[in-house]
Amino acid sequence: MTSSKSTTLSRSLDRVFRGVLGLLAAVSGGMVLLIVSYLVTGAWPAIEAGRLAAFFTDERWQPGSARDPQFGVVSMLVGSLLVTLLAVGLATPVGVASAVFHRFYAPPVLERWNRRMLELLIGVPAVVFGFWGLMTVVPLIVRLAPETPGQSLLAGGIVLALMILPIVTLTTQAALQAVPRAQLLAAAGLGLGRARTIWAVALPAARGGIGAGVLLSLARAIGETMAVVLVCGNIPQIPDSLFDPIRPVTSTIALEMGYATASHKALLFCAGLVLVLFTAVFVGWHSFRRQMADTGTGGA
């Protein structure tokens, strides 16, 4: 009797717990929908006025010009994409190499301190990164290429790379940590050296985790605002070289939102919406590929 009662109690407790967890999960998932619907509402006046076409056909972005207003957003999307890819391209090799070193070569003390430093790096405000980039990275670029403005795609890529480096490193480290010891021992048993074990066993096993880390940092980089606005130069153009200034979508929103009047504001909401959709495509593509990979290996 008593035992069945306590079972019922624990069962109902379980149900409550499950309900609470489900609710919280729904909140964090629903938040995205809430934000997207907010963006759509804000962007609606521009969509309704049929400005969306001009978004992709206009060549320049000069919403404030009385004589020739233009609303081309393509150059800014390209800017966002390029600076993000550059940052991920710079941060991924460094982050993965650092994670491998700390997982397989470094003494535990060093590993622990490195992790603390990286966690600290995550907490550094974006505006500090941006200011540091403007006062340190930009003058270096000017010295390297004296004919250029300095604030550029390259400056943005370097600053963003530093900002996402801890994400790449920490997720890679966690993924490597999760590779079963037995697999590593088996590799050693087969007579593989450390380097070969890392290359042929640990890294392939951790591939999915590393990919997730790269994706997370990519999403972080494409949405970053405060740092890029300070170092990218903010000229809406498709750059010819790394030294040309670019203007990511987020910079435009940050620079103009507080100063925009009604119709201009709707356009900025539109730009934000396009960027979110852009990121959604990335995430969707990644999960599609993972699904394909999973079903591929799952059958074997």
Partner: peptide
């Protein structure tokens, strides 16, 4: 008109302009 201006750098705040001059 702002459409006539051909800039190398576009910035928001007064201090950002000043820091741009200092850094280049």
């Amino acid at each position: 008109d702002n459409a006539d201006v051909k800039a190398d750098v576009v910035v928001g705040e007064n201090l950002h302009v000043i820091n741009s001059v200092v850094s280049n």
